[in-house]
Each structure stands twice: as structure tokens, then as C-alpha cells.
Write a protein that binds this DNA or RNA. Structure first.
Length: 208
DNA sequence: CTCCCGATAT
DNA sequence: ATATCAGGAG
């Protein structure tokens, strides 16, 4: 069974296994999703979802992020880690949105990637989940790991993994696919202790 | 390549 | 003690 056949098989199996897969980050607007996704770098979604309700209660708008002090924002997001960089980037992001985009989150990949603290992965999350635009495939730590274990890509570079996935899966499946793979990565194919013995994908996994 | 960094599981 | 968590920038 080759790579393309494996991808097709997964596309049939994954929705049966994870029918309720969805964006695990809590958000009510494109801006809130941008903030939550920046905070999610090297941090669990569970932790981000403890921080953001308090954060958005104190800072309910892009304008309030542009006006808050570095020190106060750092204390609000401290438990997510990398709090100095994240606070600096989110404040600069808010200023850039107000200056260049009328305070709205842009819907173009290149515009999103130009924002401080927003890279390709975060940009793809926002486009797919806030706007329903499938510009590319999200490749985070889970999807990179599963793509290699499942034999969908031999690369470590997230951009090369994304290029492989885009060739293997139809565009309208990209957003759901990212949620299915992340769900499987959390529940079964964990980084440290993959549960191959009980894995429902093991029959088609070259790493099992 | 290194640095940023707290919380949690192993 | 150490690896890992919806990464990005210098």
C-alpha cells in the first residue's frame, strides 16, 4: 500500500473515529482565535482555555490589547509560558491591526504571516477556523509527528510536511483532517508513549 | 541553530 | 529529572 492509498484510507477511517473533532481553543471572534493560537505555542490547549476567559474579560477588544502595559499583559498570560515574547507580540499585533487593517484580522495568508508572533501554522489555524478558508494545512507538533509515523511525509520541516499533505488530501478536507490528526495524536499516538497495541489505525501504519 | 518558559505527565 | 505541549523569531 502506497502513500496515496494510505491517505485515502485514513480519509475514510478518521471521521468515523473522531466525528466530534473540532478546534479545541475557545474563541468568539477572529481576534480571540489569533490570541488563543499565539498563546498555544508550546502550551496545552487546556491551559490556554483557562487563561483566555480571564484575559478577554479584562481586555475585550483589539484596542485594549494595544493600550495595555507589557507588565500587565505578562501577568495575565504568565502560565502559558514564553510570556515575555507572547505579550510583546500580542501588543504589537494589536497595534499593527489598528494601523494597517482597520482593527480587523486580515484574511490573507501573507498578511497574517507578517504579523509579529504569527507564523504559517497560526495563520492557517485562523484562516481555517475563523474564516473557513483552506489556504494551507496546519502542521503543528502533533500533525508533524503523525505524518511521519503514518508514512505520509518523510520530512521534519513543517513547510515540507505541509507540501506533502496538500498533495495527498483534497482541499475541502484540510481543516477537518487537522482536527482528526490532533485528536488521534492526543488520544492514541502520543509523542512519548504511542498506544500502537490498541490503535485503530495500526493495520495501515508503517510504524506500528 | 538557539532562545524563549510555565505546567504537566512519565 | 526529563520530555512534551495546536511555534516563532533572530
Amino acid at each position: 500500500m502506497n502513500r496515496k492509498q494510505r491517505a485515502t484510507w485514513l480519509l475514510g477511517r478518521l471521521p468515523e473515529l473522531y466525528p466530534d473533532a473540532h478546534c479545541a481553543l475557545l474563541f468568539r471572534s477572529p481576534w480571540e482565535l489569533l490570541v488563543a493560537t499565539v498563546l498555544s505555542a508550546q502550551c496545552t490547549d487546556k491551559r490556554v482555555n483557562l487563561v483566555t476567559p480571564v484575559l478577554f474579560d479584562r481586555l475585550p477588544s483589539v484596542e485594549s490589547f494595544a493600550a495595555v502595559s507589557q507588565e500587565e499583559l505578562e501577568s495575565l498570560i504568565h502560565s502559558t509560558g514564553f510570556f515575555r515574547n507572547k505579550a510583546k507580540n500580542l501588543r504589537a499585533c494589536a497595534v499593527a491591526l489598528l494601523r494597517d487593517y482597520g482593527g480587523e484580522v486580515p484574511k490573507e495568508l501573507s498578511a497574517l504571516e507578517s504579523l509579529p508572533g504569527v507564523g504559517r501554522k497560526t495563520a492557517n489555524v485562523i484562516l481555517g477556523n475563523a474564516f473557513g478558508i483552506n489556504a494551507g494545512m496546519v502542521v503543528d507538533t502533533h500533525i508533524g509527528r503523525l505524518s511521519r509515523r503514518l508514512g505520509l511525509s518523510g520530512h521534519n520541516d513543517p513547510k515540507k510536511v505541509e507540501a506533502d499533505l496538500i498533495k495527498l488530501f483534497p482541499r475541502d478536507s484540510w481543516k477537518d483532517l487537522s482536527h482528526w490528526l490532533i485528536s488521534h495524536g492526543r488520544a492514541v499516538c502520543a509523542a512519548r508513549k504511542p498506544a500502537c497495541v490498541s490503535c485503530p489505525l495500526a493495520s495501515h501504519c508503517p510504524s506500528a
